[in-house]
Structures are given as C-alpha cells and as structure tokens.
C-alpha cells in the first residue's frame, strides 16, 4: 500500500540545513502494523508526516495505493488525507474552541458525512476511548492523557484505512497505554494498516513489525520482525 523510494527531506532554515530524512526506503503492505522507534530527532515524525501526505519531500518517490503523491496538487492531497488517512499527532492538536464531540467531528465534516452517521461514529469512538461522558467538555478541561484519547478517538471515527500514530501513548499511564494498544490492534485486525511511532519498547514489541529510524534512515528493520519472542529471550 505504501511504497517509499529514496525519499529525502531537507529542512532549510536560514543558515542551517537539516537532513531529516535521507535516502529513505520503505514498503508497507495492506494490513500491516508497524512500530517505528528511534532516538529523538532521528526523523520519525518527519517520516510520518510525509507518509501522511502532510508534508512535501525533497527527493524520491512516494506511492500510496499506487498513486504518485509527489504529482498531486494541494486539493488532491487534502482529499487523500481526508479519505484514507487517520492521524494521532504527537501533540494532541485538539482545537481549543471545540468540545470533544466537535473535535472528533472535524474530519467527518470535511468528509461530508451526514449528521446522523457522524453522531453515531463520534459516540462510538468516544465510547471506545472511555470519554463518552465528557463529550461536552472543552479540551482544556481534560488531563493530558484524556486529550490524547480524544485525539485517538478523532482518528478512529474516520475509520481510516491507514492510521498514523505519533507516540499515541506518550501521555498515558501503562494501563491506559495497554488499552490504547489493544484498541489499535483491534482496528488493525479490522483491516486498517497502522504505522506507530513509540518510545515504549514494550509496545513496540507487541507490533508484528518494527523499524528503527536513526539519523534519517532506516537502521535495522529486521530486528524484531515477526518474532517478538526472540527479543524477550535475548
């Protein structure tokens, strides 16, 4: 489903050039669940943003479902984001003016889903993250962990085929983190392809495939692949 070839991303700020990604190659098949790990500043978020059609890249080719993303115009990219992709951002990026219900509603509105269907989806996804009773609260009335869960609910409500999660459990206690992980696994079983960045080795281990980004490149993506038991044993 995702096919990146020789992707590089250079951030140009005044005097400094940052090579956030260099010669980045990756294939992701439909239905995979991939955990991405790596040191801070290694380019994980950059990779996720490019994979999520949020950011242009400097070089290389990126095919998503066979579509050459580099050749799309702005509207077509917005459409792809809206139709195919769900995000859980590293910062939760909730809209402060909107209550939880309305925050979850945002992508559904842009997708043109009817009000009744929106309501059904919002309620069920808030239910899934255990915040149904807080639907009318504003983000600032919630704890960091709760906001994180709203961000997850917002991604889930769109029933994306491709879910990108940047530290989705970063602000959660280990119990909650495990619940979120189970939720993601559930969605994955239901057919969504998931790429998740995490610092938590335990969570990473639960994912069927791991890749590690170091210094803007994939370092070693066979390490835990397909064999979590090997790690536990090591």
């Amino acid at each position: 489903m995702l096919n990146m070839n020789g992707i590089s991303k250079v951030y140009q700020t005044e005097m400094v050039q940052t090579h956030a990604l260099r010669d980045f190659d990756l294939q992701v098949n439909e239905g995979e669940f991939i955990a991405v790990t790596g040191p801070s500043g290694s380019g994980k978020t950059t990779f996720l943003n490019i994979a999520g059609v949020l950011e242009p890249f400097t070089q290389g080719q990126y095919l998503l479902d066979g579509v050459d993303i580099g050749k799309l115009n702005d509207n077509q990219r917005a459409d792809i984001r809206n139709q195919k992709i769900g995000y859980i951002f590293q910062g939760f990026n909730l809209i402060p003016d909107l209550n939880l219900y309305e925050n979850v509603e945002v992508p559904l509105r842009y997708r043109g889903i009817k009000a009744a269907e929106r309501k059904r989806r919002i309620e069920s996804s808030l239910e899934q993250v255990g915040l149904a009773s807080r639907a009318k609260h504003l983000p600032q009335q919630l704890s960091g962990g709760q906001q994180q869960r709203v961000a997850i609910a917002r991604a889930l409500a769109g029933k994306p085929r491709f879910l990108l999660a940047d530290e989705p459990t970063g602000n959660l206690d280990s119990l909650m983190a495990r619940q979120v992980m189970e939720l993601l696994e559930q969605i994955n079983r239901d057919g969504a392809t998931i790429v998740m960045v995490t610092h938590d080795p335990e969570l990473a281990r639960r994912a069927p495939r791991n890749i590690q980004v170091v210094d803007g490149q994939i370092a070693d993506f066979s390490l835990y692949q397909g064999n979590p038991a090997a790690v536990v044993g090591a």
């Binding site: 999520g52 949020l54 702005d74 509207n75 917005a78 459409d79 984001r81 809206n82 139709q83 995000y87 951002f89 990026n93 909730l94 809209i95 402060p96 003016d97 945002v106 992508p107 842009y110 997708r111 917002r154």
Partner: peptide
C-alpha cells in the same frame, strides 16, 4: 494558524 494546520491535516481543502 496552528488550528488551521490541524484542520488541513484532517482533510480540509484550502477552499474550505
């Protein structure tokens, strides 16, 4: 702008 960035990321087109 940050809010708009989120909306754009969630699928809003420029026109919207």
């Amino acid at each position: 702008a940050p809010e708009v960035g989120v909306r754009r990321a969630l699928g809003a087109s420029k026109t919207q």
